[in-house]
Write a protein that binds this DNA or RNA. Structure first.
Lengths: 108, 108
DNA sequence: TGACTATATAACGTTATAGTTATATAGTCA
DNA sequence: TGACTATATAACTATAACGTTATATAGTCA
């Protein structure tokens, strides 16, 4: 779950598209494959999913014959916000939010 | 300055390091090369810089014999915040900031 | 002009990525 | 068990990325 792996995972348009799908709802591998029907093969999607899981951006759970995937929002937001805070002066206001989110989490 | 090019640019650790340098101050190509002394050659840095410029994350200006580089903070924050808003439910609060920043800019 | 400095480009090898098809694995159900 | 479905893995090809060294370009200055 290093920043390295996360940025690497984000560098692919199909993977970002998968993340966008998963942001709406968890999905099985098959459902995701269906969204790429005619565009990309099942094994290709399977590999993208494993890159995403390996980056820590996504979880994976086998249920019966299906494999469910879902977003880990904290991994994404955490890495990007941290990076923005480091690199982008204009983003400093975000630190406030980020700190507030951490506090909310701690208190919950 | 597409999201594609920006994420591609961000996928490299040396390039992220360069961005971090530039977030503190503008620098000449030579100064950046010096920071990678013993790690990476001058031509390698030159290529990273051209990827960064091509992505729109960085500007470039020739002054005399030197070439100065600097961050374009809006390009970075814009793309990442937009992406976060799309993909990451937890990040919705950020939209507020993003809207506020846009307003500030408009009014200035 | 000629020597020097700063930066970019060319040409090249190596490794990584992204896709393909074919096949293996594992779960379901009659 | 046997047929079927869902997913992953293997083996492969093509292309792109990243680094290197050598060289070109363009600006400075004596």
């Amino acid at each position: 779950m290093t920043a390295d792996k996360i940025f690497e995972a984000l560098s692919s348009a199909p993977r970002r598209r998968i993340l966008a799908f998963l942001s709406k709802t968890d999905m099985t591998a098959g459902e995701i494959v269906a969204r790429f029907s005619g565009i990309m093969s099942q094994p290709a999607i399977s590999k993208h999913l494993s890159v995403l899981e390996n980056s820590g951006l996504v979880w994976r759970e086998k249920r019966g014959q299906n494999v469910h995937y879902g977003l880990r929002p904290d991994a994404l937001a955490g890495t990007l916000v941290q990076f923005l805070a480091q690199v982008c002066p204009r983003s400093r206001p975000f630190r406030r939010d980020s700190a507030a989110a951490a506090k909310r989490k701690k208190e919950s």
